[in-house]
Design a protein around this nucleic acid. Sequence first.
DNA 1: CTGGTTATTATTATCGATATCAATAATGAA
DNA 2: TTCATTATTGATATCGATAATAATAACCAG
Lengths: 244, 244
Amino acid sequence: MSRHAKSQVANKPRFDPLQNVKKGDAAYHAVRRSILLGHTQPGETFLEQRIAEQLNCSQGTVREVLLRLEQDGLVLRRGYRGTVVSTTSIQEAAQMVEIRIQIESTGARQSTMSIGRDILAELAAITNDMDEAVRNLDFYRCSELDRAFHMTLFHQAALPSLEPILNRCALHIHRFTYLNAEEMEPELSFGDNHRALLEVIQSRDPAAAAKSINSHIGHVIERWAPNLMEELNRIHKHESAPLR
Amino acid sequence: MSRHAKSQVANKPRFDPLQNVKKGDAAYHAVRRSILLGHTQPGETFLEQRIAEQLNCSQGTVREVLLRLEQDGLVLRRGYRGTVVSTTSIQEAAQMVEIRIQIESTGARQSTMSIGRDILAELAAITNDMDEAVRNLDFYRCSELDRAFHMTLFHQAALPSLEPILNRCALHIHRFTYLNAEEMEPELSFGDNHRALLEVIQSRDPAAAAKSINSHIGHVIERWAPNLMEELNRIHKHESAPLR
DNA sequence: CTGGTTATTATTATCGATATCAATAATGAA
DNA sequence: TTCATTATTGATATCGATAATAATAACCAG
């Protein structure tokens, strides 16, 4: 028996031995989930001590969580006076989409050339998990898996310092879409969209891949946030930048 | 005498009474400065305890600092094994420029319409401080004031959730430029460029302002990182997106 | 020797207590 | 009463100590 396992049994393990995650990470996801699902609305304030109680951890750990969420742009810290949940305007969401398309087009072009069989399999697996999440009507998991798909693909482009920006934009777009949608029933087209995208990527044509991911993003917005699509069209009238 | 001042005198103030800044902020800027100036090179690792000693603060405070720097993309945290300084490739820098132009064009268009006399004065003041920094050959302060100028201008666009992204891109571009430049003597053209930009903004023509800020960014890159400009041109050959 | 188990070490992760801060309520002299 | 000054309160910011972790060194049966 290894020393590691022994110490966990001997002196009361503080973390769940089953899922070896850091407490701070768990707390981060818990709070982020609450924000993304609109369980805590924009404008509401978090208090470090209270969250610490609710999540069974210390103030310092919560502090770290709120710091991370601030960098994600999901909360605003007002030193000594609490941390409030931020809001995303449609103008901001539209800009996030522009940035996202800029980044992911480049990413798709790059990835197409270097992507291997193993990654394609991983992407397919994520897509299958997504079908499962859709069947369970679990929007949050859908949103996480969607980001995982796009981030995994982009990771192949080997532009690591852009990954946090992409992740951040995707996060804001998901929140905007979810909080503003009339109805939000996940549907199987999610997975099918990604599978179609994978087909094109496998064809190894960089330009086609870039075009394909752009139209993928466009379709999703058209379907779930038509008002955001209108905003994008309005913008393009004034500055003539290409969406797809 | 206020209670605040009294308590500071009575029981040994922990913070410098002269500049009432939070210790964490001071530490953040100290470490960031060290990275931006290349004083600590990409690949070097930070240890929380050591930094804490050097900066005369506790490990927890340093932790917070490194967390922030990770979100800035300047370091990479490898849990339990130290925090290493990241690097920025020319491809990444080029993408950052694209994003920056995307954001700042929109910002300039918006700001032009809502900007007031007070903000114009503040921008002019920042520009004057920059002249001073140039005279002192203080590159870091130049870089900070340049970001302050652009961020102050963009703040008027009222798109707060995009501000951290812009700041982050500007940060990376500055670092790339500084670490890759042959010579890096600040020169007075910095301030003059900004003054010319202010002229155009005062004319209240959104399209002109957007065009002007694009060419401003272009000029700066052309002057200080010609190889980055080449990379941008190479990109545009393939995807036909407008730089200026 | 040799390969796997067990200490050691260096470092991050977490906690609980205390200091500091900003807002507001209480106080009291003019 | 009024308003400047002084507590009080509820929150964050910081600290110092301890626990968990990963890498590596020491150990020892075969």
